[in-house]
């Protein structure tokens, strides 16, 4: 068994540094999710409007954001917007903007799907029972929509966390960058460190995303 460089992890503060890097990525995804859920709900509601203008505008937004790789969006915001708009944003801010825009599009589509999946007879039965429109929404429609939405939005969190690994490419120092630095620093003493460190990074992502996916799947089964 060759030396796999796992000992490098326990040298100095390497483990803590890796966890700190992971936190940078997770924090960006949590901020983006927190912003995109309310914005996405709003977008989803707007998308159900029959108005042709809002319909076209939201549709184009959704299609463009969803068809472009997130990395391209990151490049556009990070490299191009700084030039055309003349502002100077950090990589972290650029990632929050991109992931919020992307999360809003995804969430908006989920909300729209959940809203139109509520059968019409639900509204009609409610009004037949003499519920006012606001009562219909509060007691009939929103509870059903939320039940369908919660597992899907939890899934969005894991997708967001996985996607934030891309911020490495616009120079944000996150877990993968820290891993590279640690490997570089120990190149002489432990040439195989790449194996151990990258394995640990892989496991870290797994340990974060897996429980969240399990929770989403559990809720989906429970509330079906």
């Amino acid at each position: 068994m060759p030396d796999l460089g796992l000992d490098v992890l326990f040298k100095g503060k390497n483990m803590l540094r890796l966890l700190g890097g992971l936190w940078v990525a997770v924090r960006i995804s949590l901020i983006s999710v927190a912003l995109s859920i309310p914005l996405g709900i709003l977008l989803g509601i707007v998308m159900t409007f029959k108005n042709p203008i809002t319909k076209t505008v939201t549709r184009i937004y959704l299609e463009f954001i969803r068809i472009m790789p997130q990395l391209v969006l990151l490049f556009i915001v990070f490299f191009s917007s700084t030039r055309t708009l003349g502002w100077d944003i950090s990589g972290e801010l650029a990632s929050v903007i991109v992931f919020t825009a992307w999360g809003t599009a995804e969430m908006g589509d989920l909300v729209r799907g959940a809203l139109i999946s509520i059968p019409k007879h639900q509204y009609e039965s409610a009004s037949a029972l003499a519920l006012s429109p606001s009562q219909t929404y509060f007691y009939i429609i929103i509870p059903q929509t939320v039940r369908r939405l919660i597992p899907l939005s939890i899934n969005l969190v894991t997708r967001m966390i996985k996607t934030t690994s891309l911020i490495l490419m616009i120079g944000v120092v996150e877990v993968l960058k820290v891993a590279q630095q640690i490997i570089e620093a120990n190149r002489m003493s432990s040439p195989n460190a790449a194996f151990g460190i990258y394995l640990v990074v892989l496991i870290m992502y797994f340990m974060i995303c897996w429980p969240i996916s399990m929770l989403a799947r559990y809720l989906e089964k429970k509330w079906r």
Binding site: K162, I197, V201, Y205
Partner: peptide, 23 residues
Amino acid sequence: IEVSRNTPLLIQLFFIYYALPKV
């Protein structure tokens, strides 16, 4: 399926490209 779905492609690629040659 669980491992592949719960880790980002970027990290998987790093592992395949930089870590596997070490073994």
